[in-house]
């Protein structure tokens, strides 16, 4: 403990140099070995993340509060414009609502007629983003929900605007989200309305790019991109973003969610419907059909219940 004693200086200088060289070697060795991403490394990451999460949560509270203050002042400044915009949007959406209700009834009727296997309902866990990626070469976030809340690796993470990424590691109380923009993120997607399938690949830039597109694809800038559900990991139909043309010639995607303003997130506990029993056509058809003909058009929800039971 007497490292601060003056006479020991030269010796400490030498020992300091030796330990510096030792540490540099150790770090370089870790960097080389780390390519393998062993179980020990993964465990260590999880433990450290789990330990740091409560601290980060504590620290992120005032940040969130500050953001709310900034946002509310912003909103005061633009309240008139915003009001106008919302009025217009509301008028447009009311027309859409009518169309949607009609279509919903129609789809429910067709699904019943064709004995469509309805997707099981998806459970979810809501949590908060407590930690940023911290470094310039990775795009991950730390959320304050973990395996104790039922979060598992591979589950999709959404916010109010759309898909943001998926869970790649979980501890008991915290988990790590791999964002769509990360170098290692690959998500199977569908470009609507042409239903062209592609893979959305992150490259650490703000806009992930579309890969494995057919040579001649009838798609254009502004098309919607949603998850395709291929591979069975992510639920199909989650909104991701719209197509934009990048300077480098790639088709890229502007995500609906704002990566830098993520706060509340939802982890979807989707399970690929492997073992759904074949549904009995008449049994499903009868209740749905009668409800469609009745006064309420929201008939597709009751039919989801038996399918969900069959899936679990």
């Amino acid at each position: 403990m007497d490292q601060t004693n003056r006479p020991a200086l030269p010796i400490r200088d030498v020992s300091g140099r030796v330990s510096l060289i030792f540490m540099v070697t150790l770090a370089a060795a870790l960097l080389l070995l780390g390519r393998a991403e062993t179980y020990v490394v993964d465990r260590a990451r999880q433990v450290v993340t789990d330990l740091a999460a409560p601290l980060l949560e504590l620290a992120s509270r005032p940040v969130s509060a500050a953001r709310r203050v900034v946002e509310s002042t912003d909103q005061y400044a633009y309240v008139f414009d915003e009001n106008e915009r919302l009025r217009e949007e509301n008028a447009r959406l009311l027309a859409w609502k009518e169309a949607a209700l009609k279509l919903e009834a129609k789809v429910a009727r067709f699904e019943a007629l064709l004995n469509v296997q309805v997707d099981p309902s998806i459970g979810y866990v809501t949590g908060r983003v407590v930690g940023d990626s911290g470094g310039p070469f990775v795009e991950t976030l730390i959320a304050n929900v973990g395996s104790n809340q039922g979060v598992e690796s591979g589950q999709a993470v959404i916010d109010s605007d759309g898909l943001i990424g998926r869970i790649v590691a979980t501890g008991p109380e915290a988990s790590r989200i791999l964002l769509l923009t990360d170098l290692n993120s690959r998500v199977p997607v569908v470009v609507e309305p042409s239903q062209i399938r592609a893979v959305l690949a992150g490259d650490n830039s703000f806009w992930p790019r579309l890969e494995f597109l057919p040579a001649i694809a009838p798609i254009s800038v502004g098309d919607r991109v949603v998850t395709s559900g291929d591979g069975g990991l992510l639920p199909p139909g989650l909104p991701i973003g719209t197509l934009v043309e990048a300077d480098d010639g790639f088709l890229r995607v502007q995500t609906f969610s704002d990566r830098s303003r993520l706060d509340m997130i939802r982890v979807l506990q989707y399970e690929f419907p492997r073992e759904i029993d074949a549904q009995d056509a008449p049994a499903v058809l009868q209740p749905v059909a009668s409800e469609v003909q009745g006064e309420t058009p929201s008939a597709s929800t009751p039919s989801a219940a038996p399918a969900a039971e069959g899936g679990t």
Partner: peptide, 24 residues
């Protein structure tokens, strides 16, 4: 140096980047 190493290593562990990068 081991303090520097520890800080770099924890940074690498928490950021999920290459292990040992910032430590080095």
């Amino acid at each position: 140096p081991y303090g520097v190493f520890a800080i770099g290593l924890f940074y690498d562990l928490l950021s999920a980047g290459p292990l040992g990068l910032w430590a080095l």
